[in-house]
Amino acid sequence: MIKLKINGVEVSVEKGSTILEAAQFLGFPIPTLCHMEGLTPYGACRLCVVEIGEEPRSKLVTSCTYLAEEGLQVRTASRRVIRARKMILELHLASCPQSKTIQDLASAHGVTQQRFKQEYENCILCGRCVRMCEEQMVAKAIGFRGRGENRSIGTPFDEKSDTCRLCGGCMYVCPVCELRCTYTEPEKAVCGGCGNHSAVCLEKPEFNDMMCYMDPCVACEIKQPKDIKDIKDIKED
């Protein structure tokens, strides 16, 4: 057994457990996106950052991949962690503003602004689907392709894979494509249930059914007809 301190509370966990598991055992909430029970930790989304070590030599690590060490001091909600987490969420939100999961996480962590250009990607490259396909479905039909800004997930040569059994596991675990927010079509919008009730959109007739948590909300930001066209293109894709 390994003894470590999380937010000042001592806990002993089995050798080989991660900080995330130890924190969850104690009930300290750590938000995650790419982590999923039953899949190998991947550390892609960086959302589960925690601070380890003593000031001023402390550092930020991803708790889902960092194994518990004897006598480790962990802080899951220090000022530095919260700042980093908010920034990470804001970046995720910029790449996939339509993801309900990310929107809710952002809402819960008090991200109320969107300072970065919205990309309207359909993927945050968290690799959940890739690991699901490989580890749980033992199919290895999809994987990462390319690198840098051209990195994407899909089948080789964009052809239907021989090993794919159309199980749909990849879509089931995707944090971006489940409950896609459809805010340009208010009647279909799912984001009525978000945390923000300042309801800036209510004053605008075309979005009067919507309540967005963000200030200004994403829907209202789309003013240029060109932007709206872009989103329609994405949807058609």
Binding site: K140, A141, G143, R145, R147, P156, F157, S161, T163
Partner: peptide, 25 residues
């Protein structure tokens, strides 16, 4: 070529996904 990558996958026992990932990286 696509053919050659498929052959590599078949002969080495690696999955085509992994080989394609390396080839595109």
């Amino acid at each position: 070529s696509e053919d050659s990558l498929r052959t590599v996958a078949e002969k080495t026992g690696r999955s085509l996904v992994d080989i394609y990932a390396v080839a595109t990286f």
